[in-house]
Design a protein around this nucleic acid. Structure first.
Lengths: 125, 125
DNA sequence: AGGTTTTATCGTAAAATTACGATATAAGGA
DNA sequence: TCCTTATATCGTAATTTTACGATAAAACCT
């Protein structure tokens, strides 16, 4: 329950890209889902049942996790008979990498633009 | 309550780097914390009270969120009098970017190594 | 010394997430 | 047709996370 009495100064609404990034990070922020995408990267593709075998969770739980990853645009599934075969969503992963690479600009600026005077730049100076 | 009866095949334990990455993703997977790091990137530094003003949350809540970010290695705080001044942890952010950049290798291979025969590569082929 | 500001931490309630079993549905086989 | 396999979804319980108020402690000021 968020108090509305406090004036919200600068927390501007997230634009579409930021929302997408936040959704991806949230999806990956769960240990099981973190694992799943790694497994998919290694194996290239898995059917639901295989992922169920890899984890120690119920099939329904894995299915839910897959849904979160799917909706975040990190994986995609193709129905093959009664099974569903999942793999990473390459476009989504690429987007994530590019987005993170440019995220929080001004923090890790170009080495040419930011010449560290010390090996240990002061935190709050 | 995770069932232990199921054989855990290939979910190998995460190594230290993977654990660190998972922790960072988890920290960033919360909307408030996502916002905080963006604010810190824009403003370079903030004291706790300022971040409290930016959000609509209680001070104690913000403090908790800051703790999660701090422990994940994404921000750092320096005590100045009664206040604490926070900024992004540049080394941690840089590490995150590099790690994400190389994560899930084999998925977004080099364009030279993976020549797409179609504009829309099959998912589970 | 007393008062004010600031904040991290604690305890707890509320909210959100994750886990599970049940089940309907689709696909495939005998 | 019946049976089996596979899975997404639903309802719900369990667990975790997030929110809040209270408070102790540190720093600063009068």
């Amino acid at each position: 329950m968020i108090k509305t009495a406090k004036v919200n100064h600068t927390l501007r609404p997230l634009d579409a890209d930021e929302q997408r990034l936040a959704q991806m990070l949230k999806a990956l922020g769960n240990p099981v889902r973190f694992h799943i995408v790694q497994v998919l990267a290694e194996r290239k593709m898995c059917i639901t049942g295989e992922l169920v075998e890899f984890t120690t969770l119920a099939q329904s739980t894995v299915s839910q996790h897959l849904k979160v990853l799917r909706e975040a645009g990190l994986i995609e599934g193709e129905v093959e008979g009664p099974a569903t075969c999942y793999c990473l969503n390459e476009a989504g992963i690429r987007w994530l990498k590019e987005r993170i690479g440019g995220w929080l600009a001004g923090c890790c600026g170009d080495a040419a633009a930011a010449a560290p005077s010390d090996g240990d730049p002061a935190c709050c100076k």
